[in-house]
Simulated assay, not measured.
Amino acid sequence: MARLITAITIAILCTFIFINDSHAQAIDRTDFPVLSIAEPAMQGDAVLLLQERLSELGHDIKPTSVFDSKTKERVKLFQIANSIEADGIVTQEVWELMFEKSMQPSAVIASDNIEEEQAKMLIEIDTVHKTLTVYKNGEFFKKYPCAVGKSKTPSPLGEWKIVHKGLNWGSGFGTRWMGLNVPWGIYGIHGTNKPGSIGTAASHGCIRMFNRDVEELYPQIPYGTRVRIVEDGKLFPGDFKPRKLTKKMSGQDVVYVQSQLKELGYVFDNADGRFGNMTEFTVKYYQAWNGLDITGEVTEEMYRSMGMID
């Protein structure tokens, strides 16, 4: 179970509003940043997120946004409790363990039938129109303005799920946080202390909302709620550099291939950026029906066959 929830979300660290001074190392990334004692000290929202999560898990730590000796000691305690090397260094393994523990039934779900509640809700975020639209039972419910990722750090297109929820995760995340199960980084839907950014491409990949809006939305969204992030209604923008894809890989280009296969009528699970068993099976099925070598790998020949490159 633990390894199936790659990046359980660490789907968090969205905006990365780091303090920029010469006496600190700002970690401006969304891909499981490695955190440790350093000179100058690491600080920013990556560290704040770590400290907030440790506090949420019951560790005695005051979030300061600075990775100091006390933070290292609390990380070591967490590592000891999870039977991994206790070196006080936050690696991808630590992030994943830290957030997979958040897969608990949501306290805000009114119904006893969690699967029924999940099926009722769908969130669709359009990165072109900067909108977050909520659907209930397949029908439009409400639309909110939002901010999305900048061109250099785009929001991840794909079909995701809400896998973590939290309150008041520091000013950079506003008053509410809902993390996504994106396998290659740290993304979520959250509030903001920069309301002027709403309606623009301003974040490092996460979805920002006005605090009042995310507070209204938060109690209505159970764990497992589906989230689609699209570009002008589409999961596949058509402007990417193809690479050979094989089983166990992940990334935005895996989403594009999954999405294109679905557009061509090959139905399987979500376009979630994970090249697993079902994606491999579908690739082989496509290759068999289109006279290609049945390898289960996405090569230049298959990209061309699907109309994704010239």
Score class of each variant (00 low, 15 high):
R304Q: 14
E215H: 00
K150F: 01
S65R: 14
P242Q: 08
W160L: 08
D112K: 12
R29D: 14
L180N: 08
V66D: 01
V255L: 05
K120D: 13
M42C: 12
L49Y: 03
G291I: 04
G149W: 10
L4H: 11
P145V: 01
Y286L: 06
P40E: 06
A38T: 14
T295L: 05
D213T: 03
K101G: 13
V255A: 07
I294M: 08
L57P: 00
H190Q: 10
E93L: 12
C14Q: 11
T127W: 06
L13G: 14
Q287F: 06
G196L: 03
Q118F: 00
M302D: 04
K284V: 02
N277K: 15
Q92C: 00
W169T: 12
D232V: 00
H190C: 03
V257T: 02
T299E: 12
F173K: 02
A46S: 15
L77T: 10
V283N: 07
F32P: 04
A202K: 09
L13C: 11
L132I: 04
F32R: 08
H164Q: 09
I89M: 10
A2T: 11
I109W: 01
G174L: 06
F16A: 10
I221N: 03
M278Q: 15
A119P: 00
M249E: 14
G138W: 08
Y218E: 02
N82S: 02
D232N: 15
M302A: 05
I162M: 03
E216H: 11
T282K: 12
V163R: 09
I123M: 13
P156M: 05
R228M: 11
G44I: 05
K247Q: 13
G138Q: 04
Y187K: 05
I17D: 15
A7F: 03
S250E: 08
I125F: 03
K262G: 10
H59F: 15
G273V: 07
Q43E: 15
Y135S: 10
H23G: 05
S259Q: 01
K142V: 07
L50G: 01
P219V: 07
K161P: 00
V298E: 03
I8N: 12
K150T: 15
Q25P: 00
V90E: 05
F236W: 10
K241H: 10
E73G: 00
I162L: 06
T131Y: 04
T64R: 10
G58Y: 07
F141V: 00
G158Y: 05
M302E: 14
H204R: 14
F16N: 14
P242N: 07
F236L: 14
I294V: 15
N290S: 11
T131M: 08
G88S: 08
L48P: 01
L49Q: 11
P237E: 06
E117P: 00
E263H: 07
A110Y: 10
S197V: 11
A46N: 12
N270R: 15
F275R: 09
G185D: 09
T246V: 14
V254G: 06
I294R: 02
T127E: 03
F140Y: 15
A202E: 13
V182G: 02
D28H: 04
Y187P: 09
A271F: 01
L4F: 12
F210P: 01
I27L: 15
N193P: 05
T200P: 01
T295A: 04
S250R: 14
I84Q: 02
I125L: 06
Y223K: 06
T131S: 14
G88Y: 06
T9D: 11
I189Q: 01
K101L: 13
V255T: 04
